[in-house]
Design a binder for these strands. Structure first.
Lengths: 335, 335
DNA sequence: TTGTACGCGTTATCAG
DNA sequence: CTGATAACGCGTACAA
């Protein structure tokens, strides 16, 4: 089952076998090549990746740290990245942080041990970060030893970053919604201080402001960043509070759906009484009535870019921002 | 960054350093222990997992092959398995087969190279299998070299299998629905010959039969196994065909939702004109109106059992079946 | 083109 | 309790 087994059966040296099996060098006779290949097939030989990694000092793996896989958004992101990685012949080693910062650090430590070509962090960055310093030095260390670090949608650390335009997407959405006649939106941010989420809130508020509509601070809330969080927050509101609003904008579709569910349970008609809008454009939306207005994030593009950065030469450090696009749908009709 | 660096800085031999870093053996002086630990921290040392795997001849990894991560059901399954694995201190190496059988074989080959403790296949098995023989021998080979193979919900190969009761769940659901007065169900199976899906169809039909209701073959369809598949199939039906039915049962929630969307688009009222039921009880359902009747699959239990089998001693080869549970909801009211 | 020999970072055996 | 030393499976100068 080892390479020497193959070599012995083929009647060649281990080096020759090595050359044909992974063979960057084409400098090997055709006769011995087929000999080796046949032997390998007969023995059902599979190269020991660990040994290869040790010998080479590098693996063909990129490590992906994501917040969750059960969540629709991150699941889609993960899928996109795995696809993009496969396209360039890279394996993906997945780790899930469950949105815990300490766990993130732990994972980086663990993953460093895998000697991956790159580490991609697809979680959302924190605004003020207790353990982030430790995380940053750990990543820096990794980078010093030749690894590459790529962040997705979190510019809180000085590494290669793939960004999509949270602020602008929310801004444009807000402008469109103001144009449709909305005047008193309720904004659902995130209790966890996530940078990209704050950008969405800021962009949204600025967008309405640019249309001459001011959103007072008391209409901006920060529930726990989840379906549940929005759901229970809205359950806590009294009817007057909701009646005063004509729109709920949530920083993610997941949060928006939690809000929508709560409204439904309370018998508030969407979109007749209240419009609802989210962010991300997750697949789940196809099954929701009314069709949810949101901001589309081109995950495939993001993923491809991230993998590209993870592998390309270090000198092209451009930091371009991938545009997002508002998707106006049934949940926010003309007012 | 290597163990010898740590050892040198600590002023001990490499062996001692090795012992304290991973140290199954506690047979090491406290003085040198702290010495090593300090050195390791100072250098930011991370054990090279690949090297460990080579030296030990085994890794702390289990490989998971799943059909998809974008799909809600498999995403939840993947999350559950990662959680269960983490509980017992195992890493999970994830690979996605995209439901392609040849890819599955390819992945097993690749993953074998990682020398994982076990390989878990969480895809759905095929009834008749062209490449399956190759897959089976590849897995058998892996098992011969000390690896463990665990199948989830596919008893098409002679390996350790974690099964949940597809047949029985569908059967009980059918009985309940018959009890609610449904008499002319439309059944959506899977064009791909997936064993567990066929079991659901069989169980459902048998359930109705046991209630004295016969489901003729022309009301059992086999669209492509996806949201899209069901969606376009239903779009092809004429109204009479649909009017003759009082219920649509789909073998998975995903498929059911595709059907539901199609019905909605065609202006057919659910559940007033037509009931809808699925299978899996995916999280997405919380956002769907009307609340979908389905069969609950206890994924956490399944995952825990799978990881257990992947690690437990080989002699406890009991093949218990995890029960599923019908969930009657709004989409199938009393007729 | 091929083979020999050494090194990769660890673990494990076996004397001390 | 500790330290040489031999593996582990593979890649790769270097020499042939």
């Amino acid at each position: 089952m080892t390479l020497s087994d193959v070599a012995r059966l083929a009647g060649v040296s281990q080096s020759t076998a090595s050359r044909v099996i992974n063979g960057s060098a084409k400098r090997v006779d055709n006769r011995s090549r087929t000999l080796v290949l046949d032997a390998a097939r007969e023995l059902g030989y599979t190269p020991n990746l660990a040994a290869q990694a040790v010998a080479r000092g590098a693996s063909r793996t990129i490590a992906l740290i994501t917040s969750s896989v059960a969540d629709a958004y991150f699941a889609a992101m993960t899928a996109a990245i795995m696809r993009a990685a496969e396209e360039v012949g890279l394996r993906v080693s997945l780790a899930v942080s469950d949105r815990r910062l300490d766990r993130e650090l732990e994972l980086v430590r663990e993953l460093r041990g895998q000697q991956p070509r790159a580490i991609i962090l697809a979680g959302t960055g924190y605004l003020d970060a207790p353990a982030d310093r430790a995380l940053e030095t750990e990543l820096a260390r990794y980078q010093e030893t030749g690894g590459r670090v790529v962040l997705i949608s979190r510019s809180d650390m000085p590494f290669e970053t793939v960004d999509f335009d949270n602020y602008d997407g929310a801004h444009r959405l807000a402008v469109e919604l103001a144009g449709r006649g909305y005047r008193t939106p309720l904004v659902l941010g995130s209790a966890a201080p996530l940078r990209s989420m704050q950008e969405r809130v800021d962009g949204f508020i600025a967008g309405f402001a640019s249309a001459g509509v001011d959103i007072p601070a008391e209409r901006v809330h920060h529930p726990e960043f989840s379906w549940q969080g929005a759901h229970s927050l809205l359950h806590g509101f009294d009817r007057d509070e909701l009646a005063a609003a004509d729109l709920v904008f949530a920083i993610s579709d997941d949060v928006a759906l939690g809000a929508l569910a709560s409204l439904r349970e309370r018998g508030i008609a969407v979109p007749q009484e209240l419009g609802v809008a989210g962010f991300d454009d997750i697949t789940t939306l196809r099954d929701v009535v009314p069709k949810l207005t949101t901001v589309h994030v081109p995950l495939d593009e993001v993923a491809r870019e991230a993998v590209h950065r993870a592998t390309a030469s270090p000198n092209e450090l451009r930091r371009n921002v991938i545009p997002t696009r508002p998707m106006l749908r049934e949940s926010t009709p003309q007012r």
